[in-house]
Amino acid sequence: MQVLQLTVNGIINGSSYALLAVGFGLILQVTGRFHIAYTITYALAGYTASRLTTDYGASFWVALIVGMLVATVVGVLIEAYIYWPLGPRAGNFALLAIFTAALGLLTVGQGALGLILINSGTAQISGFNIAPEQIGQVFFINLDVYTVIISWALIVIVALVLGRTRLGRMVRAVRSNLTMSVAVGASPRMIYLVIFGIGSALGGVGGVLTSTKAAVASDSGQGAILYALTIAFLAGTFASVIRIAFVGLGLGILESLANLWVSPVWDPVIIYGLLLVYAALKPFDVVSKFRRPTLRSASASASEMAS
C-alpha cells in the first residue's frame, strides 16, 4: 500500500515537474537561452494570484489566468528587451552574456520580491478550499487532482500546437536549423518571443498552483526550476514535448519511490545525482546545448533582419 501511495505522490509531483520542464525545456531547446530567471516569472505569477485573491477577492480561477498572463508578459519582455538585444552586442560571448543577464535578473527579482513580501506580509492564494480526498487507502487533496489535470491538459495542448500547426512547423524549423529557417521565411525573433510566452505561461500556472499550497517566498520555485532543468537535460536536446513531460513524470515517481529506502531529505541528492551521472556519461549532449551554431547567430541576426 505504501508503494501505491508513494506512486500517487510521485504522479502528482511529477506532473508539476513535467509542466515546468516542458516550459523551461522549450525555451532551452528552441532559443538556447539558459533562462534561470524563469524562477522569477514562476514566483511573480504566484505573488500576483495571491494579491488578487486576498486583496481584491478574485476567484482562484481568475487569479490562475491572470497569474499565467503576468508570467507570459514578463517572460516575453525579458526576451524582447534584455536577451535578444544582448546577443549581437556580446558577439561570440552571447551565451555567457545572456546567462549572466539571467543570473542578474534572478538576483534582482528575488531581492525585490523579498522586499515586497517583507512589507506586504505573507502572500498565499486564498479562495480555493483545499479538501482531503481518499481512494481506498490512498490519500491526496483536491488541489492535487486539479494540478495533474491542468498540467497534462496544458502539456497536450502545447504538444498539439507544436506538432500540428504552422506555428509548430516554424518552431521546429528554428530549433532545427536557424540559417535554413530564415531561408524558408520563418522569423526567428517572432518564434523566440512565442516560445518565451508559452514557456513562461506554463511556469506561471505552475507558480500559481504551488502557491495555493504554500506561501509565496522570494525564492519560490528555485528548487522546482532546477528539477525542470535536470529533466530538460535528461530528456535530450531535441526531445519532444511529450517525452520531456514523461521524463518529468518518471523523475517525480522515482523521487517518491526512493522514499521507500531513504529519507525525503535525500530527494535533491537523488535528482541532481542523476544529472551528474548524465553529464558524466553524455557530456557532449550537455555541451551541445551551448554550442549549437544557432544559439549565437540567433541574436546576432537580430540587427541584421529587417523585420
Binding site: 521546429r172 524549423a173 532545427s176 536549423n177 540559417t179 535554413m180 531561408a183 522569423s187 531535441f238 523585420s307
Partner: peptide
C-alpha cells in the same frame, strides 16, 4: 525588406552550408 517578405515575394535562398533540416 525582411527575408520572410522576400520569400513571400518569390525569392528563395539556398545557403552554402546547413541547407537542410537534418533532423527532419
Amino acid at each position: 525588406r525582411s527575408p520572410r517578405k522576400n520569400v513571400q515575394g518569390g525569392i528563395a535562398l539556398i545557403p552554402s552550408e546547413q541547407f537542410v533540416f537534418a533532423d527532419m
